[in-house]
């Protein structure tokens, strides 16, 4: 497989064709707030946009006061000043994006950061929303907006781990699957993603609490890698640990990998919901995680069981073409 692992070299002329109209990633929105975690998100958004040939929108949401918050003595609105400051932050954010990525910076107003980001992503016709998070350090999220988004985003949500650099590009797409059932919609999505990103597809199963086959499983658990020789079948990784967090640590995640995961069954239709299992995985995951929203035509064979880190997801459908243009 071919991928470009060097930081930001200038691409060969004309090497960035528009993605095909059925490609899963044609437009990527990054939620940016001016903090360090937001810079992680920009780096991830840029790496994905670059690998996918997608357009990048960096969005900064200026929140408004709740109308029931009285400020006294009246001082008028400060959102203009915040927007000025936000525009300055956005200029810094744009500098993180390689020159060959088509990037637009936007300031939008929202009742909350999460609502504003969803509205902006829908307005721009984005196929993916990228945010930073405090993940990778045992914590799940550090920002209330991320907390809200993982339970409400209508489009796939990518969470950049703390300190993400993006210098390795995108080399592998891991699809989180359960070992018990056969085919999952998240697998279809991951296949399309790997195809577009020119990355290797890997099926990963994470399990907790299963001591068999080793009697002292706590010490003996390991990441078993079974590589299928057949070309069509992707590599499969099964990681078992005493806890899910331990199983996550057992996997040798490549620097340039992504993990795709379905939403919990609690998710409303066409909404995304990070289940407790996914949340536990996320807390230890050193690579970006992408959570897929539930599809309307959800079927029953994609149950999220209590010890299998899989939840139903759906194939990413092509976006309505050219919403923003």
């Amino acid at each position: 497989m071919t991928h470009d692992a060097s930081p930001h070299p200038a691409p060969p002329a004309g090497s960035q064709p528009d993605p095909r109209s059925d490609a899963p990633l044609r437009r990527i929105a990054v939620g940016f707030g001016g903090d360090e975690r937001s810079r992680d998100a920009v780096r991830l958004g840029a790496a994905l946009a670059r690998a996918a040939g997608a357009r990048l929108d960096i969005v900064l949401i200026v929140t408004q006061d709740d109308p029931f918050t009285a400020v006294y003595p009246p001082v008028g609105s400060i959102s203009g000043i915040v927007a000025d400051q936000g525009a300055a932050w956005l200029r810094e954010a744009e500098e993180l994006v390689p020159a060959d990525v088509d990037v637009t910076a936007l300031v939008r107003r929202g009742a909350s950061v999460a609502e504003g980001l969803i509205a902006a992503a829908e307005e721009r016709g984005a196929d993916l929303l990228v945010t930073g998070s405090g993940v990778g350090a045992g914590r799940i999220t550090s920002h209330p907006a991320v907390e809200a988004l993982v339970h409400s985003s209508p489009i796939p949500l990518a969470l950049a781990p703390a300190g993400y650099t993006g210098t390795d590009g995108v080399t592998d797409v891991f699809a989180a699957v359960s070992g018990t059932s056969g085919r999952h919609q998240v697998v279809d999505a991951a296949t399309d993603w790997a195809d577009q990103l020119d990355a290797e597809l890997v099926h990963v199963t994470l399990r907790a609490g299963e001591s068999a086959p080793h009697p002292d499983a706590g010490a003996e658990t390991r990441a078993d890698t079974e590589t299928d020789a057949a070309e069509q079948t992707p590599r499969a990784v099964v990681a078992v640990g005493r806890t899910l967090a331990q199983a996550v640590r057992r996997v040798d995640w490549p620097q340039g990998a992504l993990l795709l995961m379905g939403s919990s069954r609690l998710a409303g239709r066409r909404r995304l919901f990070l289940g407790t299992v996914a949340a536990r995985i996320l807390s230890r995951l050193p690579i970006p995680m992408i959570v897929m929203p539930r599809h309307e035509h959800e079927t029953d064979h994609t149950l999220e069981t209590d010890h299998i880190a899989h939840a139903p997801g759906d194939a990413v459908t092509a976006p309505p073409a050219g919403t923003a243009r």
Partner: peptide
């Protein structure tokens, strides 16, 4: 490149 427009109002 910075694009501004009216967003949702509270």
């Amino acid at each position: 490149d910075t694009d501004h427009s009216k967003g949702l109002s509270r």
